[in-house]
C-alpha cells in the first residue's frame, strides 16, 4: 500500500485501528514521536495515544483502582483541573470527571508528560536498537531495569510492548498477559511506516 504522510489525525486513526483490530486485548496504545532537542540529540516525546480501557469481564465497569482514598482524591483533582483547562470553565460539576480514576487511566495520563532520550526507557531502547521490546508477566515488568516497566506493573499492567517505526515508537500496554505476536508487529510496520 502507498505510504501515507505523517499527521496527527491519521495517527489517532492508526492507533485506534491497531487496538480495535487486534485479537489481543490491549488497554492502550501510544505513539512516541522522535524529534531533536536543543543539543541535536534524539528525544521521544508524546505523539498521540488511544486509551481503550480494560476488559469488562461482566462486572459492569472497568477494573477498579487499587489506589488509596487520598490518591484517588489527588487523581480526581488533577482530572478536574485538566478538564477545566480543556473546556475553559473555571469549575466543573461534571459527574464523569468525579468517577474513580483507574490505575491504567492514570498511567496513560501521566505518560503524556513523559519523554525518553534515545536508548532510555523501553521506548528509547526500542528506537535506539531498532528492535522490539516485549515485556510480558508481572515479574518481568517488576524486575525490569526500566522505570516505565516497573511503573506499569505497579499500575496493573501485565504486558508492555514497544515496536520501533521510522518516526518513533509504538507502545502497547495491557492488563492481560499477552505473548509475542508477529501479526501485531507486522501491523505496526504497515500502519506506522510514514513517508516523511
Amino acid at each position: 500500500p502507498p505510504v501515507a504522510a505523517f499527521n496527527q489525525e491519521t495517527l489517532q486513526q492508526r492507533l485506534q485501528a491497531l487496538i480495535e483490530g487486534a485479537r489481543e486485548s490491549w488497554t492502550y496504545a501510544i505513539f512516541w514521536q522522535s524529534s531533536y532537542d536543543y543539543s541535536g540529540a534524539t528525544v521521544l516525546g508524546w505523539g498521540d495515544g488511544y486509551y481503550k480501557g480494560e476488559e469488562d469481564k461482566g462486572r459492569g465497569k472497568s477494573k477498579s483502582s487499587a489506589s488509596s482514598v487520598a490518591e484517588q482524591e489527588h487523581r480526581k483533582k488533577v482530572l478536574r483541573e485538566l478538564n477545566s483547562l480543556i473546556s475553559g470553565s473555571a469549575s466543573s460539576t461534571d459527574d464523569a470527571v468525579d468517577e474513580e480514576v483507574t490505575d491504567t487511566e492514570w498511567f496513560f495520563l501521566v505518560s503524556m508528560t513523559q519523554s525518553f532520550v534515545n536508548g532510555g526507557g523501553l521506548p528509547g531502547q526500542a528506537f535506539f536498537n531498532s528492535s522490539s521490546v516485549w515485556v510480558a508477566g508481572t515479574d518481568s515488568l517488576a524486575n525490569s531495569t526500566c522505570e516505565r516497566a516497573r511503573q506499569g506493573q505497579i499500575f496493573g499492567l501485565q504486558t508492555i510492548v514497544c515496536i520501533p517505526s521510522e518516526n518513533g515508537v509504538v507502545e502497547l500496554g495491557s492488563t492481560e498477559l499477552i505473548f509475542q505476536s508477529s501479526d501485531l508487529m507486522n501491523k505496526v510496520r504497515v500502519l506506522f511506516n510514514f513517508s516523511n
Partner: peptide, 26 residues
C-alpha cells in the same frame, strides 16, 4: 496541568471525551 504542552491538548481532550462516554455507557 499548566505543564501540559499545547501539542498534547488534543490527546487530552480526546481522552476526557471518551472517558465521559465510557462512564455514561457503564
Amino acid at each position: 496541568p499548566s505543564a501540559v504542552p499545547q501539542a498534547r491538548k488534543a490527546s487530552l481532550a480526546r481522552f476526557l471525551e471518551k472517558r465521559k462516554e465510557r462512564m455514561m455507557n457503564a
